[in-house]
Amino acid sequence: MADNVMLYLDDIQHLNPEFLQKFISLADGQRKIDGIFEGESKTYDLRGKRFCIVMAGNPYTESGSKFQIPDMLANRADVYNLGDVIGDTEALFNLSLIENAAIENSYLEKIASKSFNDFYALVNYAQSVMDQLPDLEGNYLKQDIDDFIAVLRHVLKIRNVVIKVNQNYIQSAAMQDNYRTEPPFKMQGSYRNMSKLVAQVVPMMNEQEIDQVLLAHYESESQTLTADTESNLLKLKELAELLNPVEQERWETIKEIFRKNNKHGGLAKDDKVFGQLLDFNENLEGIIQAIREYKN
């Protein structure tokens, strides 16, 4: 291999950790890696070469199981969480979700493909309370501009939900299981999700139809989560403010059961008696505390 080489591995959450461990010697001072060349094993020495390796992945796999980079590899690498918004870049990150998805929607693409300055100007117009349209560089039909703004206002609503999903996905992945107060949230708010959602938006849609687009998309995404599907969909509806009273009650019940099971460390059926003793002890402590407060 020549100098100035970058090896990029994507979706490493689907790879076997033993395979990833093969890169440990490449990441430390040895700068070597074992491989096969023309059917024979060979050790590649990359010292002195301008070579880097970039790996990207998600903290959860498609089935919802937790993925962790092997410690010895993580300790030798620079680790970045691309879902985190740092400093004053939040507005740019939020805008990028719309930028990247614009090509998937014909109404947005009509203007974005001609002038991104006009695209940005109309995005600012749609997000503000301005009464007058901004001056645009290109010549557009009034219908094209009206369609663009109508679609964009729906896209802004979708974008806000996707951002919430992304933030909760990151928080859930970074939280230790012992500290959880609700089931892990494993749905993603990625550029891919945003593009799929934006592609379905047309100008004449109403708010209820946009809600249905969101729910249908994430219902499809949740099918690989098996036993976690219900809790994740209810959490999604909570983030999108779409929970009805029955679903709200069900979600509170799930969280209460989860907190109780998590507190008892996931007791098996044979440990029910021990769990009941723990509950009795908690109730007894509550009675003692109430007596103390009454005496005071």
Rank of each mutant, 00 (worst) to 15 (best):
E238F: 10
V155E: 02
E137I: 05
K66W: 10
S128I: 02
V123H: 03
N16D: 13
P17C: 04
D177S: 11
I36V: 05
D11M: 03
K196P: 04
Y169A: 00
I103D: 10
D279P: 03
E18I: 09
K237E: 05
I210N: 08
E182D: 07
M1P: 08
G266N: 01
A74G: 07
K269R: 11
V161D: 01
L267G: 14
I145A: 08
M205D: 03
G29N: 15
N178Y: 12
H217F: 12
F148I: 02
D118Y: 00
D28P: 09
K263S: 13
Q127S: 15
M205S: 01
L95C: 05
R76W: 03
H14Y: 11
E62N: 12
Y294A: 14
K114Y: 04
M175S: 09
F185E: 00
Q143D: 15
E221D: 06
L97E: 01
I158Y: 02
E207H: 13
Q176L: 14
M205T: 02
N296I: 10
K49I: 09
A27Q: 08
E209G: 08
D135K: 08
A227C: 07
Y179Q: 06
E62I: 11
H154K: 08
D88F: 08
D3T: 04
V246N: 14
Y125S: 03
I257D: 08
N206C: 09
K114F: 08
I69Y: 07
E62H: 11
L92G: 06
F119N: 01
Y169S: 03
Y107I: 00
Q188P: 06
A102W: 07
Y169E: 06
K295L: 15
Q171R: 14
K114M: 10
V129C: 11
N232M: 04
V165W: 00
N100P: 02
N58T: 11
P245N: 05
P70T: 05
H14G: 12
Y8W: 13
E99F: 10
Y80R: 11
L108E: 02
Q167G: 09
D135S: 13
E221F: 01
Q200S: 07
A27R: 00
K110A: 10
L9F: 01
G39K: 02
S63N: 13
E252A: 11
I210W: 00
V213S: 08
C52S: 14
V165M: 00
D10C: 02
D131P: 03
K32S: 11
S41W: 09
Y107N: 12
L141I: 08
N75Y: 08
Q212V: 00
A126Y: 05
S195T: 02
Q143G: 12
Q132D: 15
L236R: 03
A199H: 06
R50V: 04
D11V: 10
I291K: 15
K255G: 03
K196N: 15
I158G: 01
N117W: 12
M194P: 01
F67Y: 04
I12P: 06
G83T: 04
L236P: 00
A56Q: 03
Q167F: 12
I24W: 05
E38M: 12
R47T: 12
V246Q: 14
V155A: 13
S115L: 09
A91Y: 02
A2S: 14
D10K: 07
I210P: 04
T253A: 08
T181Q: 14
T226M: 15
N296D: 13
K237P: 02
I86K: 13
